[in-house]
Design a protein around this nucleic acid. Structure first.
Length: 432
RNA sequence: GGAGACGUGGCAGAGCGGUUGAAUGCAUCGGUCUUGAAAACCGAAGUACCUUCACGGGUACCCAGGGUUCGAAUCCCUGCGUCUCCUCCA
């Protein structure tokens, strides 16, 4: 969540900056609650102080004295309790309002309304061209016997797929290549829980606003959510903890299944593997000091781009505009891969920095190293969390099929993946 | 699924209902001693919020919420969380 102090010290700027996301943004409730809270605190503390003062004399007092003061104390106590109740109510409302407030975009984020205002930063490779009529991945996958959408629909409904045979193997090869890639860079691999408490989802900003996007499970009275991304469990790995500055930055990656209900996206990408209820992703998650954050961010973008280049996939990097920025993010770069069937670039990775927004929600702090001369213990402060896909496995599979298809309907396997495919270099139609 | 135990400071671990924000140990940071270090000794040290230009002052916090009481870390209820045993299971 945003720093509530901004409401007092820097209200106009804060509002203006949030309006870069949405011109109709309204902070008036938040502000009035913040002032209301402050006033209540003052009144309550005065009452408590009075009560404490009287109470101090009670211990050694004679029974007469005690009974004399009793009524007064009782009245004070009641009054204080009523104020406490009032204060708690206000604080709860303030907290809820803060949870519903998105992160503030950085000054450098380009102004814009939606996707069309995103800014291309870099283009790697040229869109693939063919001297034959190119097929899409559904056609390729089905004709080569790699993908089975129909039977998946029979078993689980729409937006699911069976990968089979070489298709399953190729998927595994892609994932393994990426896992090894990050491991070689020295990041720590985590294999996280796929079911998380609501508190974890709240920590990254997924709850309370985006509950519709997640699958919920029930077990008795307990409720757990299927993770929409490994960001949720991995970022919360350090929830409620204080890290030493010397241990930062920390780099993790996790390979996991992800589950999204795709509520509200009816009709979008209904065909094929682009938008599934269940997909695999390798996610990079980082914890950094504010000074380190930008370099970490750039590093994740580079990683994702290098992997795409390794797979010989044309892609581009775009910076999201204020209107397209996700709820918790402060700045974000998307990597988009070229998809011949759609004749356009499609998102395959999203690398975001969250500033202290998530860290404040999940209560992840770091203790700055003491200045060389200083003897004082430093004050813990929220750190910076970042994450980025490196990459979405299913969409990578799609991109490889479509970009590396041959005139005869076969698929050329990128060189780096061949070792992961037992040396296989081409996927051809088998007579069946 | 059945039975039970427990939630106190960075960690471990005390705490007759009233000078307990909280003993003690470890860890941390200063100092003394030492050529330097270790050891020993002395000392400092929680978090949030309100108030003050500042020094400072104040309030709350012993998982959370409610109750009993003039007064609760301490008693009572509820919730949440953790652990152990049995059962089942990849």
């Amino acid at each position: 969540m945003i720093d509530s102090k901004l409401l007092e010290t820097n209200f106009d700027d804060t509002l203006q900056n949030l309006r870069r996301r949405d011109p109709n943004f309204d902070l008036s409730l938040l502000r009035s609650l913040s002032f209301e809270r402050k006033a209540l605190v003052g009144v309550l503390q005065e009452l408590q102080e009075k009560r404490n003062r009287i109470n101090k004399g009670m211990r050694g007092a004679s029974p007469d004295e005690i009974s004399a003061k009793r009524d007064e104390m009782k009245a004070l106590s009641m009054e204080a309790k009523a104020k406490e109740e009032e204060l708690r109510h206000t604080e709860n409302r303030l907290h809820d309002a803060l949870l519903a407030t998105p992160n503030i975009p950085r000054e450098c984020v380009p102004q814009g309304v939606d996707e069309s205002d995103n800014v291309e930063v870099k283009k790697v490779g040229e869109p693939t061209t063919f001297d034959f009529v190119a097929k899409d991945h559904v056609e390729l996958g089905e004709s080569l016997g790699l993908l089975d959408f129909e039977r998946a629909a029979k078993v689980s409904g729409s937006r699911f797929v069976f990968l089979k045979g070489v298709g399953a193997r190729l998927n595994r090869a892609i994932a393994n290549y990426m896992i090894d890639f990050h491991a070689k860079e020295g990041d720590l691999e985590l294999n996280p829980p796929l079911l998380v408490r609501g508190s974890a989802a709240e920590g990254v900003g997924q709850l309370p606003k985006f509950e519709e996007g997640m699958f919920k499970t029930r077990r008795g009275d307990d409720q757990l959510y299927l993770i929409p991304t490994a960001e949720v469990p991995v970022t919360n790995y350090y929830a409620n903890e204080i890290l030493e500055e010397s241990s930062l930055p920390m780099r993790f990656f996790a390979y996991s299944q992800c589950f999204r209900s795709e509520a509200g996206s009816a009709g979008r990408d209904t065909r094929g593997m682009i938008r599934q209820h269940q997909f695999e992703k390798i996610e990079m998650v980082r914890f950094a000091t504010p000074d380190q954050a930008d370099a970490e961010h750039q590093n994740m973008v580079d990683r994702a781009s290098r992997i795409l280049s390794d797979f010989e996939l044309p892609h581009r990097i775009v910076e999201l505009c204020t209107g397209d920025l996700s709820f918790s993010a402060e700045r974000c770069f998307d990597l988009e891969v070229w998809l011949p069937s759609q004749n356009t670039y499609r998102e395959i990775s999203s690398c975001s920095t969250f500033g202290s927004y998530q860290a404040r929600r999940a209560k992840i702090r770091f203790r700055p190293a003491a200045a060389p001369g200083s003897k004082k213990k430093t004050k813990a402060q929220p750190l910076v969390t970042l994450n980025g896909s490196g990459l979405a496995v299913g969409r990578t599979l799609v991109a490889i099929l479509e970009n590396h298809q041959q005139a005869d309907g076969s698929i050329q396997i990128p060189r780096v993946l061949q070792p992961y495919m037992g040396g296989q270099s081409v996927i051809e139609k088998t007579s069946d």
